[in-house]
């Protein structure tokens, strides 16, 4: 990056990350909002930035666009240093803020035109409003908008000028399933266009179908990161429920002695076996049949990412883990 008068030009190459955060710490007085955070988002990627409310997501986002100065650490966005080139970053980034208020007396279209003017782009505001599903209410004042409509409008403002990076802070909050679907399809369209998407949410469900990678933030630190499948397998709680005609003597002990089996529960003729590795399910079935039991029903249970998320973001992971098992048992392993 070179500094030339007051303008900064990004010298980002296609292989450079869109977002590079190193050792980022931010304190508000004694409160540590972000704690030594390292984060890399590649160009063209959809990155799910997950965490419960208060985990430090919005603070991180404010630092990414340069409106909040970090206590320490370095942040580079699209090749610009966030601390010195906030204007260039905000020109190239489309931001949907997590919490915002609309200009109550302005219409939806006027909001988009304002964003376009500030970004110095000329495009039809109506096309963008149609994309987010607000074409019909473009001339209504925002004071009459519902929460979901407001978020759609904020998304429309974020989309102005075809940004290289979309930073969406809780874009689906307050949206009905239909609205959330619109957001996800827009995210896919934007990535197809070549944009990078940084998608923050407190709900795993909202991001798992669109994100290439997910990072989970807790107390200002990344506690898990990886692609969706990898995170799923990282949760060591896979269960298989076998219903047999009769439970042979000694079978529970036998199963308990198998590799990767962490627990065996019996309820009548149903055995619920907890495994730390999903691939050991076949071995459990084989062992059961070898012991002389006739298996009449098999139900397997794989934890959802939502449960993974709950497990890693809960202060006491053990509790979350056990509760999850309880849920699985209660729902017959179908959860």
């Amino acid at each position: 990056m070179i500094v030339y008068f007051n303008f900064q030009f990004s010298l980002m190459t296609p292989s450079d990350p869109a977002i590079q955060v190193d050792g980022l710490t931010h304190r508000y007085g004694d409160i540590v909002a972000v704690n030594d955070l390292d984060l890399t988002v590649e160009q063209g990627e959809v990155y799910g930035f997950l965490g419960p409310n208060g985990a430090g997501k919005s603070t991180t986002i404010n630092i990414l666009i340069g409106t909040t100065q970090p206590t320490s650490g370095s942040v580079s966005v699209l090749g610009y240093e966030a601390q010195t080139a906030s204007g260039s970053i905000r020109q190239a980034v489309g931001l949907l803020p997590g919490e915002f208020g609309l200009f109550e007396r302005l219409t939806g279209r006027e909001h988009v035109v304002f964003a376009q003017n500030c970004k110095d782009v000329t495009e039809s505001p109506d096309d963008i409003l149609a994309r987010v599903g607000l074409a019909d209410v473009a001339d209504q004042r925002a004071s009459g908008y519902s929460t979901g409509m407001g978020r759609r409008l904020a998304l429309a403002m974020a989309l102005t000028g075809d940004p290289d990076l979309l930073v969406l802070d809780e874009p689906t909050r307050g949206l009905d399933p239909n609205g959330a679907r619109t957001v996800r399809s827009i995210v896919r369209e934007e990535v197809e266009r070549g944009a990078t998407v940084f998608f923050s949410s407190h709900s795993m469900e909202q991001v798992e179908s669109v994100c290439d990678r997910v990072g989970v933030l807790r107390d200002g630190q990344l506690v898990a990161e990886g692609d969706v499948e990898m995170l799923r397998t990282r949760l060591n709680d896979h269960q298989i429920a076998l219903t047999v005609e009769r439970v042979p003597d000694g079978l529970p002990d036998q199963l308990g002695g198998l590799d990767a089996v962490s627990d065996v529960q019996i309820d009548g003729t149903t055995l619920t076996i907890s495994l730390t590795v999903a691939s050991r399910k076949a071995a459990v079935i084989d062992a059961t049949e070898a012991a002389g039991a006739t298996v009449i029903d098999i139900e397997t249970y794989t934890p959802s990412l939502e449960e993974f998320f709950a497990a890693v973001t809960d202060q006491d992971g053990e509790v979350a883990h056990n509760e999850m098992s309880a849920i699985a048992a209660a729902t017959g392993g179908d959860a």
């Binding site: 409106t67 204007g87 803020p97 915002f100 909001h111 304002f114 500030c118 970004k119 904020a154 403002m157």
Partner: peptide, 8 residues
Amino acid sequence: RFLLGLPN
């Protein structure tokens, strides 16, 4: 949030 989120 909008005023500062845009390049102003």
